[in-house]
Computed example of a mutant assay.
Amino acid sequence: MVNDESSRGCLRIAIASYDARFFRICQNYISCLDRDAFRCDIYQSGKELLAALERGFPYRAVLLDNALSDMDAPAFCSQLQQMSPNCRPWLLLVPACDVDELCRFIREEGGQQPESDTVHKMKLSSLNSLLFDLQSMLQSQAAPTDSDAALVRLLLCWGEAPGALGSQYLRECIAQALRCDPHFAIRKDVLMVVGERHKVSVTAVDSGIRRLIRSLNALNKPAWQSFKRRHCSPHQHLTTGKFIYAVRDELLMPPQDPAEQPLSEGDLQTHEREFQPV
């Protein structure tokens, strides 16, 4: 059964099972997020879902029970893997199968297909990580927020690529920090959330941001020097936590009136400037 197409802009999810209880379980998980951001279509037949995918239905995720009316989960995955990568969902959940075992099965079924393409096009999820994976899909689809756009401009002024891994960790940490209480805990409220989303440790996220700080110190652009002067004492070591707090505070600052902005070194007051004849 397929719902109508009335909600453009939603993430489309296909839930496939022969058991109504599986539908309720999946919908309970999805209801923990923004329900208006998702559109769920229900299938009992694996063949019908595969046909819909081949016709180009834009399902970003398939939540697959082990029992369908006409095939089991491994048979469905085998046929799914033979399809064009452009037809496959971004996310695949099969709670009845171990993720590592299913990953090996899909790679074996992929034959000569490069592993990187398989991993990129079809990420395997579990019930434990489903909420984080769905939230990640939402964030990847959403247009950049004003704060993220401002952070991208900061990174470019500092000389760093916004899409680099450390920059991406920072952008997600800042987005999370802006949603938190002002007195948030860096490790628990920010780094852990971003790490779980990427399926990496807190240490890995922290290390990525510290590498970003070292890179910015090495580049030492004027905009970076100015940022550090505003948020750090001259000889203060900039840790991951202090950096996240400082960037968040920078983004929350009201824009300054140009007349009130401090002069950069070498700038002259208006009365000190010499006016040259035109």
Rank of each mutant, 00 (worst) to 15 (best):
P234S: 07
A218N: 12
D206N: 11
L212C: 09
P234I: 00
P182E: 02
R211C: 06
I209A: 08
V205L: 14
A223T: 04
L219Q: 09
A204M: 14
L191D: 02
S233L: 13
S233P: 08
V190M: 08
D206L: 11
I209Q: 03
N217L: 01
R214I: 01
R197S: 11
V194N: 10
M192D: 13
Q225G: 08
D189W: 02
S201E: 05
S226G: 07
A223R: 06
N220Y: 07
L212H: 12
P234C: 01
S215P: 11
V194H: 05
S201K: 08
S233Q: 12
F184N: 11
P234V: 02
V200E: 03
V202W: 10
V205W: 15
I209P: 04
R229W: 13
V190A: 08
F227L: 00
D189P: 07
A185N: 05
H235S: 14
R210W: 10
V205T: 04
S215D: 11
F184D: 13
R229M: 14
H235L: 13
K221D: 01
Q225C: 07
N220W: 10
G208T: 06
V200Y: 05
R187Y: 03
G208M: 03
V194C: 06
P234R: 09
R230M: 06
W224S: 07
V190G: 01
S207T: 14
I213H: 06
I213R: 10
I209T: 03
V194I: 12
S226E: 03
S233M: 11
V202C: 08
M192Q: 13
E196C: 15
V205E: 11
K199C: 14
R229T: 12
N220F: 06
R229S: 13
S226Y: 00
A218H: 14
K199D: 14
I213P: 06
H231F: 08
V202M: 11
G195I: 10
Q225F: 04
L212D: 05
L219A: 01
K188A: 09
D189M: 07
K228T: 05
P182Q: 00
A223E: 05
L219N: 02
A223S: 04
L212E: 12
I213W: 08
L191M: 09
P222I: 01
V190P: 01
T203K: 15
D206I: 06
R214L: 07
E196G: 14
K228V: 00
V205D: 11
I209V: 05
R187S: 14
V202P: 04
V205R: 10
G208S: 11
V202L: 14
L191S: 05
S226T: 10
V200G: 01
